[in-house]
Design a protein around this nucleic acid. Structure first.
Lengths: 247, 247
DNA sequence: CGAAATCTTGAACAGCCTCAACTTTCGTGG
DNA sequence: CCACGAAAGTTGAGGCTGTTCAAGATTTCG
């Protein structure tokens, strides 16, 4: 699975590790060929604004991006964090525009597809269309889990759950090793994803460290006790639709 | 828009009121013809279990349904509420199974499509496929708004926001009038959707009543001051992708 | 009509927030 | 390479929002 896409520089991580994520070689080649080329954005850049027309879609190749909404006071709520291999704004393809902003976290490298080109490629490829559809529904499944996280878990559970999710997703695309991964989020960013304040996230991280469950220092997460952390977070990666060996 | 589908008993409410929700007549006819017929479920029934294979998809014709997940203690978190015209488990078509349970709230009437029949209809209908895809992305947009609601609003804002959302969605399908609509939820159900306790939802409803913003009695919601309620809830229906006149 | 579910209210508590001050790290230009 | 300012992280004290527990009132439904 990881090698057979070595010659697909853009799509090599797309749907990697997902159950049913095997795309037929000709579909994959057609999609890869329709790309417009790659692009970079600097850290903390806004890539898509809520409400403005979206005419192309972006696959994240390197780095982290997020989707977010602001409340009246201007405080952000992150609604998604994207890792390499994610189509960050494919929702804009059937929708035409987006209800939220999309921005970068660190600096990123992305690939682009014009919607017109996508339409052409997908016109006679119902299987590939369903794969793309599937990939947007993975986002929906993560959204639901985030609703659960915010609605039912306390502060420590929320932070733990998010960091468990990222470990699995990064592991699927080969960017985590033994529960260690790079994560260029500030504590304030974590707070914006977890519906907490930065101050409280700081205390939560201290508690996780003191319980010897997890470390987060220098933009690096180290999970010390995965089983205990997952128990605390009520985390079950089922909703990520991974291949059985990855679960 | 509302009349031209009068002869489509199942689909007459599907994507009604949505921007870009105009389905070509032949697509609509083909989809309607592929339905397996209708079915009813009693109140508080479980329709789909998380993790079990889904081989058909369900369009809600009458009544209310919900999607939910349970925490370790057995407490529910609702992740979606469905109204007539919603394809409640279309996510199962590209996914094959679901990460959450689906149940009824009151008693309901639904129509069913076998996935094999759907596949056949959609095989050569990329436009219709994108409409179905779009309808699942409306769910995703609502999920995101629920994340925002739970992450950034206080108790009164959360309840107000949910009831604002349901007013718009029910109005789109002709089931709300002047801010009044039938809603067979208990206060405990509302609590499960808002990440609150039933006790506190009771106090919140009292506060909304005393502020003369909204009444909820006898399974009926009456919005008394829509502008003030929306302001309190930081509610903007943009994310529901409605036709401009409905916004 | 009676039982069960739902709604309502009160009192005490806990978790997270706010505000504030201080420390450490990062980034940039001299 | 160092110095400096800005950003990020850390810690404490006090307060508010929503929870928990409990009891009673009301409604629903068989």
């Amino acid at each position: 699975m990881s090698d057979e896409r070595g010659d697909r520089p853009y799509l090599k991580r797309f749907l990697r590790g997902r159950r049913g994520g095997n795309i037929a070689p000709d579909d994959l080649a057609a999609l890869e060929a329709a790309a417009q080329g790659e692009q970079t954005y600097r850290s903390r850049a806004i890539v898509v604004r809520a409400g403005s027309p979206v005419t192309n879609s972006t696959l994240l190749l390197e780095g982290f991006m997020c989707r977010y909404m602001d409340d009246r006071a201007g405080h952000r709520q992150l609604v998604a964090i994207h890792v390499p291999g994610d189509f960050v704004d494919l929702h804009g393809f059937p929708m035409g525009w987006l209800d939220h902003d999309i921005g970068t976290i660190g600096s990123v490298r992305v690939a682009n597809w014009a919607h017109s080109a996508l339409e052409e490629v997908l016109e006679h490829r119902p299987r590939l269309t369903r794969m793309m559809w599937f990939s947007t529904l993975l986002d929906a499944a993560m959204h639901r889990e985030w609703v659960f996280r915010l609605g039912r878990l306390d502060a420590i559970g929320r932070v733990a759950h998010l960091l468990c999710e990222l470990e699995v997703r990064l592991d699927m695309v080969g960017l985590a090793e033994n529960g260690r991964y790079h994560l260029p989020l500030t504590q304030a960013d974590l707070a914006e994803a977890c519906g907490l304040t930065g101050v409280h996230v700081n205390r939560v991280l201290r508690s996780l460290r003191e319980r010897e469950l997890l470390l987060f220092r220098n933009n690096e997460v180290t999970i010390l006790d995965k089983a205990a952390l997952r128990a605390l977070a009520e985390f079950d990666p089922m909703y990520l639709y991974g291949d059985p060996p990855d679960r």
